[in-house]
Design a protein around this nucleic acid. Structure first.
Lengths: 355, 355
DNA sequence: CGTTATATGGAGAACGTTCTACAACTCGTC
DNA sequence: GACGAGTTGTAGAACGTTCTCCATATAACG
């Protein structure tokens, strides 16, 4: 079949929408229409175009797409890549995105507000179609401002009053309550929480929510109106120092609830080094049910909040918002207890999962 | 009837390069020149423009930049986000990128060749300036084809003959030798390796390189011409089953070298469950020196290959290639041994048996 | 037949940058 | 006062899409 040659020198070897149009003998607009599944395309035209796309192995430029329309990319912002809980969220995101035509690009902010801001801006500048922010540090007003420019779903960010963006959370208050209830059920009364020492107490953060749940459950259990909450710094040398201090305290509590498995596991390790027996001298319960906690060597009881599901739900919410939903959604999941030997010597040592 | 993608992008009065130009009373080209630090800009002009940029909080659109020039973004492709070694690489990348004007965007391929290809293509389509591929699965010819379109540095990919792209590796052969030498130095003679059971043996992969080093060191130590190498599948249920089988073998070796801490740590856990004492009954040495290995509870001897440094070096290599280098570079780092209790009871006196 | 509605395809203006080519202006220098 | 040589700024053509009109062909109807 003769193809009309427009004498247009193809200096670049890249296959563009124009190459496809020429090859199929149709207009650029027609190809674009087929690509976008737009209205007003006959079966014959569609066939011609898809054949040409196939033959030329055409891939639309995301950069050019972003300039005008959608880029079919969603950005995921992680606060920290070393916390083993976060990869689970990514896995969930990818599972939902897999069959769709969207792709995820991940940025890592390392818990620095400055970098977080600039990554969000970059993602907007890339004309990404939506953002999933995992445990962002920015205040709600700032997020709301960004949300005007791009659909946003925040995970691990407790602000159910936000109207500009969606949130997806495990119920961290309830999770902490479950932890305390489990300790109480084992007969422990002298209970403390080891929380995270952040510079500014971020009311929306999962950590603060867990503190609230801890306090409520303790009060409900009749254990004082202001139960003890210790703060462990995030930086490494001071972090272990604080834990050692806790472990060697004379009035060390009988049981401890750690805000995260990360801390609980380090605590377990230090306890072993210092000859503090777990659970005989000190019962420990963590949060996240990370893979390391499940190791027989570690055997850490933990609150499970399925990062995978969180990622899946967040992704679905984001897509629905991209496709036009405007009312904000705030989704909660209920965490559950995974009982292991650090809580009580339970005989077999196999996992016991309870609602 | 066809489904039409409908979207109403909010009309946003974005600050563009044109806004800045008008505000500063200069041309668009002048602003672009200042942005790019190009030649032929007077101090007065520069001052006017930077003031306007500041006043308007102008951010250039990466999408538009990518269409014409550079996007100042580099793509990082991770084979798997759950392996705790990989976050270290990212950390190294971010450290080098931090002070520069480049930013990293990460894609996760989940070890699927199909997804890996499409992510690389996406990153090219985004007009990213360069790619760091961490332990890619694609064959060298394919990578070379991509490398024509975009600068590529492969990490954990042994192909020193590649001319189209750079490689950055720890010397995995040497690492395995060091592991065997350490086991020999402890007096163990009956040594096996537990390697990864991949579908197609990928000669460029770190795993195969470690097998080569293992064989060479064993032969050099006079321990047979074809030492035993077991294969552990990657999928979870079969994986533990294979390890249990190994641990309960009557002719189980006295010492084992695992290709990765991931496997070594699981092995340690199962050994404890099954009553196999480490190191008394079985000495174990891993690879990667991951944070979990360093835990007192785990205390796994391991070969350290500093993922952070690998990330840093790869990033510097990529930037130099983006800035014009054309000859390929193949960089090696020498790994080192971190001795811990899983290798030999070394005096710190920690007990592997929990309780 | 003429008129109108509908279905299909195309022209061409955005989108926000980069960067080449060139204009204008200042200094010397002969 | 003509002529380079150098310096500083600008105009305008890409880049590869999307998407709003608009043109044309066909069908439906009086």
């Amino acid at each position: 079949m003769p193809i009309e040659d427009k004498q247009k020198p193809q200096r670049n070897d890249r296959v563009t929408i124009r190459t496809v149009a020429t090859h199929a003998g149709v207009s650029v607009a027609a190809v674009s229409k087929v690509m976008r599944n737009a209205y007003g395309v006959s079966d014959a035209l569609r066939a011609k175009v898809t054949d040409a796309i196939e033959a030329l192995a055409y891939r639309p430029s995301r950069a050019a797409r972003g300039l005008r329309g959608r880029s079919f990319t969603i950005g995921v912002l992680l606060i920290d890549i070393r916390n083993p809980f976060l990869p689970e969220v990514i896995a969930g995101v990818n599972e939902v995105l897999g069959p769709s035509h969207y792709q995820a690009m991940i940025g890592v902010s390392d818990a620095r507000v400055q970098l977080e801001t600039s990554l969000i801006e970059s993602m907007i500048d890339y004309k990404m179609d939506g953002l999933i922010l995992v445990a962002p540090r920015l205040p709600s007003e700032i997020l709301a401002k960004f949300a005007v420019q791009i659909p946003i779903v925040a995970v691990g960010y407790h602000d159910a009053s936000a109207t500009a963006f969606d949130t997806v959370n495990a119920d961290d208050q309830r999770g902490a309550e479950i932890a305390v209830e489990a300790l109480l059920a084992c007969g422990y009364r002298d209970i403390e929480m080891l929380s995270l020492g952040e510079r500014q107490g971020h009311a929306v953060s999962v950590v603060r929510q867990r503190e609230i749940g801890f306090r409520r459950a303790m009060q409900r259990g009749g254990l004082g109106s202001s139960p003890a909450i210790g703060k462990i710094p995030i930086a490494s040398p001071k972090r272990e120092e604080a834990m050692r201090k806790f472990l060697s305290r004379k009035d060390r509590p009988r049981a401890v609830f750690c805000w995260s498995d990360l801390d609980a596991i380090t605590l377990l390790s230090l306890a072993m080094e210092m000859g503090v027996r777990v659970p005989e001298d000190l019962a420990v319960i963590g949060y996240d049910n990370s893979p390391t906690a499940a190791l027989g060597l570690v055997n850490l009881a933990s609150i499970d909040q399925s990062g995978r599901e969180l990622g899946q739900v967040a992704t679905r919410a984001l897509i629905s918002r991209i496709e036009g939903r405007t009312a904000s959604e705030h989704i909660f999941q209920i965490p559950s207890l995974v009982s292991r030997n650090s809580l009580t010597r339970s005989g077999s040592g196999t996992d016991m999962k309870q609602g």
